[in-house]
Design a protein around this nucleic acid. Structure first.
Lengths: 331, 331
DNA sequence: CTGTTAGCGCTTTCAA
DNA sequence: TTGAAAGCGCTAACAG
């Protein structure tokens, strides 16, 4: 089913059929109606590859994410997809599983696919080859969750958020607060959040802050339990994301601790599932879908202006403390 | 960066460059090395649109899923992505949010994108316009999770699984067993699972089976709590998926019931997160990533043979009872 | 082993 | 308002 056949059937030229689809206003109403009817009857759908090849724009936005197993990224992707669809754009998502190599590969693939722009979550913006390539080639892109002065980012202020959280915990009477943190090398979020933790602890005048670094992928129950051992154990655990919080709760309950009675556990991200859990997850909630949507608008505006996004166009969105049920005053 | 410029820089014809990429064996080692070096230096990546347009194959597999918010589909997608990548295929996922209209739209978009084949989870294979279109146009496709005699499907026998589960619960002493089920109109899985429930109840000689139908999207705590009211309340709840099980546990705990002591709750799907919860989710686990992978292999085999998949090539994979901690003998 | 060449289906001047 | 025609970048005969 090509434009040729539609043109032939309708008794017009291919150019007219093309116009009927792309700038209907330029086609006489009668002609347009005829073409629409014919196309409908033949089940004609314009060939995206040909269109892209010829017009040098694909109306596709590439998306690079660490993984879809962590619901925070799935939620964000839904936001991206929705915002893109509303503007007539399709999305092409790729996951990197926190691997730098796959990050570069994804970016390369997306470039080959002629995406008009990209939305990415990378490990570490400062160190990313992939981003450099994008910048040097003038491909418009926006980062989400990442924060970096040299790149256009849509994010929340994790550092401040966690620092404030520590203050809040301190107010609740917690003195011994520890952090469970994802691999900082694989995520600038983990870095910022742990930085905020240390800052908050210092501000509160709390001593010897403990930060336990664990992998993202597998549960690390034993390490967490080791952290919770002894009479001088922490009374509150700050986790660098909700998934780690969920794992921490399990680890704690397994060793006989009650959450939040004996131990407060708070997460970061605000995944929707956290609201359904028992206890409901106490967490610093990010507007995940909205962040996705905002990054798309930013990107599309840049596309419309015909120039890449600048670092100074970064957006910091408000986070929100979700009280939940896994956090309580110190015992 | 086009093949032209690489050819020129390397002092060979475009055909040779093309061959160097697509059938390296046909190019003299020295020439190939030169081309590879040149391409590398210039940062050349073949243009996917041009390639697809010319060769009439995109090496892309379209994927249609209800949503990525339910982790079962996210896990499945990871399986699909991995299997596809291993064979040099990219994937193009679209979500339908359980809407029939979006289902058709997705299929149409994917066709326009020249995908070589599709993997889909639809609401109801028997009623799907989209599938009919695919079949009539000879586009190879495979369904996952769905089960239907007229379509090639990769699935587990949900009906049998749930029937067996009811037997198991009966063995554990449960007499009053109810089901919490997703909208049957929006999902043939919900249909099959509720059918299995009724069958299991009949087999066990248990009376008046209660099936509560709830929406997929929003929590329905009140309806579930109404079901659990009174002294003659169920002692076990069979949920048509893990998300509903998680919600049911919350609803139960909120009204003072202990899980599994007062009430057993079992799910269906085997999402990875279920293993991390407290109590760990008791569930009928499907091999989600594997199902995705198998559907891809099936599809690629069909592609290699140059013909669509047939209904009789359907695969039924084994499910597995995951004991968990949310299910116990009747109180 | 390498080069020449004809399109794949579409958009977009340029003319009429 | 419409048509003719020139490619977008690539692959796949075909020829050498």
């Amino acid at each position: 089913m090509s434009i040729q056949q539609v043109a032939q059937q309708a008794g017009v030229s291919v150019a007219t059929v093309s116009r009927a689809f792309n700038s209907p206003g330029q086609v006489a109403p009668a002609t347009r109606a005829l073409i629409e009817r014919t196309a409908q009857r033949l089940g004609y759908v314009p060939n995206a590859s040909a269109r892209t090849l010829r017009s040098q724009r694909s109306r596709v936005i590439g998306v690079v994410l660490p993984t879809l197993i962590n619901p925070v990224f799935a939620e964000c992707l839904e936001g991206i997809a929705q915002a893109a669809a509303a503007k007539g754009y399709a999305i092409l998502p790729m996951t990197t599983e926190y691997s730098l190599q796959r990050e570069e590969h994804a970016v390369q693939q997306l470039q080959a696919s002629n995406v008009d722009g990209m939305v990415l979550v990378v490990s570490s913006p400062g160190a990313s080859q992939a981003l450099q390539q994008l910048a040097s080639r003038g491909v418009p892109y926006a980062l989400i969750y990442n924060r970096h002065p040299d790149h256009p980012c849509v994010s929340v202020d994790s550092e401040q958020a966690v620092a404030d959280l520590v203050t809040h915990l301190h107010t609740l009477g917690h003195q011994r607060i520890a952090m469970v943190c994802g691999h900082r090398a694989a995520s600038d979020r983990a870095q910022q959040r742990s930085k905020g933790f240390l800052q908050g602890m210092a501000q509160a005048g709390l001593a010897t802050p403990l930060v336990l670094e664990v992998p993202f992928i597998h549960a690390a129950a034993q390490q967490i339990q080791a952290l919770l051992q002894g009479s001088h154990r922490p009374t509150a655990l700050v986790c660098s994301n909700d998934l780690l919080a969920i794992r921490s709760i399990r680890a704690a309950v397994q060793m006989g601790l009650r959450v939040p009675h004996d131990l407060s556990v708070v997460g970061f991200d605000g995944i929707a599932l956290g609201l359904e859990l028992t206890p409901m997850l106490s967490t610093i909630a990010q507007p995940n879908a909205d962040m996705g949507a905002r990054s798309v608008s930013l990107l599309l505006e840049a596309l419309a202006r015909g120039e890449p996004l600048q670092a100074h166009q970064s957006i910091t969105l408000a986070h929100q403390w979700r009280t939940g049920e896994s956090c309580a005053p110190a015992p």
